Amino acid sequence: MQKRGKKTAAAGRNEKLEQKIFQALAAAPRRSILRHLAASSLTAGEIASHFTMAKPSISQHLAILEGAGLVSREKRGQFVHYALAQKVLEPCLAGFLQDVGIADRAPPAPPEDEKQAEPRAKGTARSASTERTAPTEPADMDAGNAEKPAPAQMSMF
């Protein structure tokens, strides 16, 4: 049996971490949770208010994200606040893009019809040919996020 060197062991740990990260990113609800946490830290209840799934399911998704190192948690009083761990996600994704060979490439040029389009003034409508639609939200997202009030939190003070 051969002994593994320090570099080989470190590479193995990095591969395992990358595998955990990509497994965590594979599920649409977890990617949605990360989108919400990109804006600010949230409690589990605040995260759950954005979804129609049960709270134990949200907790399970948070545990997977935390296990992959994508989310950190901090206890503040009786609440646990979750935050996006950008220092883990960014190097992993940048390393992946480099491994695939597209990190050093220039971004793709916009289609010809968008290059020639006049810059529009704020508040003017776009033509149908240049209109870009936002990616659709996962089915488990609540459609009325904007109208929902923030969940009330009890305070001991």
Rank of each mutant, 00 (worst) to 15 (best):
C92E: 01
S32F: 12
T8L: 05
H61V: 00
D113G: 05
E131R: 11
R30W: 10
I33T: 05
Y82W: 08
D140T: 15
Q153L: 14
S127R: 15
E46A: 14
T130E: 12
A63T: 06
L65I: 03
M154C: 09
G144W: 00
V100I: 13
R76S: 08
A103I: 05
H50E: 15
V88D: 12
T130P: 09
G69R: 11
E112K: 14
A10Y: 13
D113K: 15
Q23C: 07
R105H: 15
D113N: 13
A63E: 01
N14L: 11
F22T: 00
E74L: 07
T124V: 10
G123R: 14
L37T: 08
R105Y: 14
F79M: 04
P56Q: 11
I47G: 00
A9N: 07
V88S: 12
K7I: 00
K3N: 02
P56L: 05
L89R: 06
S57F: 11
S40W: 04
K122P: 02
E15Q: 10
A10G: 01
G12T: 00
R35S: 02
P138I: 05
G101P: 07
K16V: 00
F22Q: 02
E90M: 12
T124L: 13
A106Y: 04
D104S: 09
L70G: 06
E137I: 08
S72V: 08
I21V: 14
I64C: 00
A9M: 10
K55H: 09
